[in-house]
């Protein structure tokens, strides 16, 4: 790992100012479980010369729930989110998604903000410099994507543009199904709020230099909402999702009045299957409805040459998530 200066921030404003300072290549560090790996692998063409520790900012790890909903600070650790009583009670798929991330040791340090903002897992993007140099790609400002004609078994089947890496965050998928809003703060007190799926672009995120995710707000759950989060991995725990699905379904008198179907690891951002949601609304939810909705959800998928299998796979996970939500 290349050497760098290390600064402990005590306020968000201070951190944003440091990160935005012209002439420095600063990066924010929260749990570090993703960033340190990326630095050791030497994947950045311009490695940071300054790391800004966010953990020293007081209060940024708070988890607060009340009638207005849930507010989770960006520095809240995944383990704490997973076992938070209010989250488990009222936003269970958020808790399940946090619990589905990596290993216990990682969840003990990894933060919500870090999970949302982690780098993609594309194995071309991540190729370690120690094996003959890192691989240049579109995402790094290079001229082309080496993955597209390569091994794309884990790549996007939706919304890829130039880069086909998928958003690897599990919490983002659950949060998108919960209509969560991400709070971004930037230099000079700038502050904006975005739906979680709008944070991501095919080549990265919308974050401006010096801008940080500082919190996530989740509205209170609808009274009759039922939900499920399913994550398909090569191995049960610890792996990144091949496909994940968060489903939230509101049933009144046996009729679906509202639905969220969000697919993870299929595109550069959590992919909301709007047409499938619309198909569910207004009818009863049973196996046939679930199968049909799943069919609709994947109808627009555009797999690459190496990941066509993700389409039927995602279809079955969507179907199962809808049915699991009924049980939930």
């Amino acid at each position: 790992m290349r050497s760098f200066r290390h600064v402990r921030a005590t306020t968000v404003a201070e951190a944003c100012a440091l990160l935005a300072e012209p002439g420095t290549r600063a990066r924010a560090n929260a749990g570090g479980s993703d960033l340190l790996g990326a630095l050791k692998d030497g994947i950045y063409p311009e490695p940071p010369d300054l790391l800004v520790d966010l953990k020293t900012i007081p209060g940024l790890d708070a988890i607060e729930a009340d009638e207005a909903g849930l507010r989770v600070g960006a520095l809240a650790r995944l383990a704490d989110i997973a076992r938070s009583e209010p989250i488990r009670a009222h936003w269970p798929i958020f808790s399940q998604a946090a619990q589905a991330v990596a290993s216990p040791q990682i969840r003990n340090v990894a933060t919500l903000g870090g999970n949302l903002c982690q780098e993609v897992r594309c194995w071309y993007f991540r190729y370690p410099a120690g094996l003959g140099g890192s691989i240049d790609c579109l995402r790094k400002g290079g001229p082309r994507c080496p993955a597209v004609k390569g091994d794309t078994r884990y790549h996007a089947i939706f919304e890829g543009r130039g880069c086909f890496a998928v958003c690897p965050s599990d919490t983002a998928v659950a949060l998108a199904a919960l209509d969560a809003i991400v709070v971004l703060e930037g230099p000079g007190g700038a502050r904006r709020e975005l739906p979680v799926q709008d944070v991501y672009t095919p080549l990265g995120t919308v974050l401006e230099p010096g801008e940080l995710v500082t919190a996530v707000r989740v509205p209170p759950p609808a009274e009759e909402a039922r939900s499920a989060f399913l994550k398909f991995t090569v191995r049960e725990p610890i792996d990144f999702a091949v496909v994940s699905v968060a489903a939230s379904i509101t049933l009144r008198d046996g009729v679906c009045t509202d639905a969220r179907l969000v697919l993870g690891a299929v595109g550069p951002r959590p992919y909301r299957a709007l047409e499938a949601e619309a198909r569910l609304i207004g009818g009863p939810i049973d196996e046939r409805a679930a199968v049909e909705a799943a069919e609709v959800a994947l109808a627009g998928a555009k797999p690459l040459r190496g990941n066509a299998y993700k389409v039927p796979l995602a279809r079955s996970i969507v179907m199962r998530a809808i049915l699991a939500a009924l049980e939930g």
Binding site: H6, G32, L36, G37, K40, L51, S103, Q105, N108, V109
Partner: peptide
């Protein structure tokens, strides 16, 4: 692995199991 993926460097930090390869000492 030195990348937080194998658990061999696990230690307890304030009682929690963490991966010592993926923590900066200054932090």
């Amino acid at each position: 692995c030195d990348r937080g993926a194998c658990g061999m460097c696990t230690v307890l930090l304030d009682g929690r199991a963490v991966l010592s390869c993926s923590l900066l000492t200054v932090e």
